[in-house]
């Protein structure tokens, strides 16, 4: 019976032991190492390195690759956020109507969310190269006759298109769930009062959607700032580095250039950016909470 007494007293420690150990070994230790490496000149190839203070951080801000990458990443993130919210709400409104066959449309519109992002990137790469480009040539449309992702001017848009093609599905699910939670009585009251479509949207649907908007905003922002899979598969960061996200830049510096220390410093900067926008977002969404 002594064992039973032990379990009954210390059971919470036993129940949390495994996840706690895992988090310490495979999350907190590497996290600390990441911070430490960012102050070193470690290449990743040797076992020794020197501490170089904040040199890596100073170098970042005069690194043309970093500056171009942060510009691209911010634009891409803004595109993703705006696209997911605007298109997401528009599609959710369409799918919320009681029309025949709406179930089938929903099935189709949600499907992109479950496809592997890397597979999708590979598919669209082929599609842009061998499908759209010949088509553009055939139709005599100049900007289309070259692969969208091979041209610096259009690669951004090609990438954003594919990102939204997949990325809008989950926001639609979230917005639709919120629209469906609006009580029928409220809609009826509005229509009795003679509210038109826009008034209904502005005064009834939008307030119900606002918690969902802040969720989608956070998700889209994190997805944009850390984007890797799609870009790695679709453009590889090119042409001439114009679509290299911060996530990809960290990978390239670490594993292609063997600059573990410097890449770690960029990762920490990325972390700080995400932390700042998260704090701003959480604080400002509190003000609007219903």
């Amino acid at each position: 019976m002594r064992e039973k007494g032990f379990v009954n007293r210390y059971w919470p420690y036993l129940f949390i032991l495994v996840p706690l150990l895992l988090q310490i070994v495979f999350f907190f230790i590497p996290l600390a190492q990441g911070v430490i490496y960012s102050f070193t000149d470690w290449t990743g190839l040797t076992s020794s390195y020197n501490f170089i203070g904040i040199d890596n951080y100073l170098a970042i801000f005069s690194d043309a690759k970093f500056l171009s990458s942060i510009g691209f990443t911010l634009l891409f993130t803004i595109g993703l956020v705006v696209g997911q919210i605007v298109l997401g709400i528009a599609i959710a409104l369409l799918l919320n109507q009681k029309i025949k066959g709406v179930g089938l449309f929903r099935t189709a519109y949600f499907f992109p969310a479950v496809i592997s992002t890397v597979t999708l990137g590979l598919i669209f790469k082929q599609f842009f190269n061998y499908g759209l480009a010949p088509l553009g040539e055939f139709l005599g449309i100049e900007w289309l006759s070259q692969s969208l992702i091979a041209n610096e001017g259009t690669a951004f848009w090609g990438l954003l298109f594919v990102a939204l093609w997949q990325g809008v599905a989950i926001p639609v699910v979230i917005f639709l769930a919120n629209l469906q939670s609006i009580p029928n009585e409220i809609r009826e009251a509005a229509s009795i009062d003679g509210a038109n479509r826009w008034q209904t949207f502005k005064s009834i649907e939008l307030p119900f959607l606002s918690p969902a908007i802040s969720i989608v905003l956070i998700l889209a922002m994190k997805a944009g700032l850390t984007a890797f899979d799609l870009i790695y598969a679709l453009t590889g960061g090119g042409p001439s580095g114009s679509t290299t996200s911060l996530g990809l830049l960290v990978y390239n510096y670490a594993f292609k250039n063997n600059q573990f220390g410097y890449a770690s410093a960029i990762a920490i900067v990325l972390f700080i950016i995400i932390a700042i926008v998260s704090v701003i977002q959480i604080n400002s969404s509190k003000k609007f909470e219903v």
Partner: peptide, 24 residues
Amino acid sequence: GIYIMLIIGIFVPFQVIMIPITSM
């Protein structure tokens, strides 16, 4: 405190631990 330790990972981008975890 342990709860916070276990969920804090939600806020940390993977890139921060990517390099150390790969070599570890």
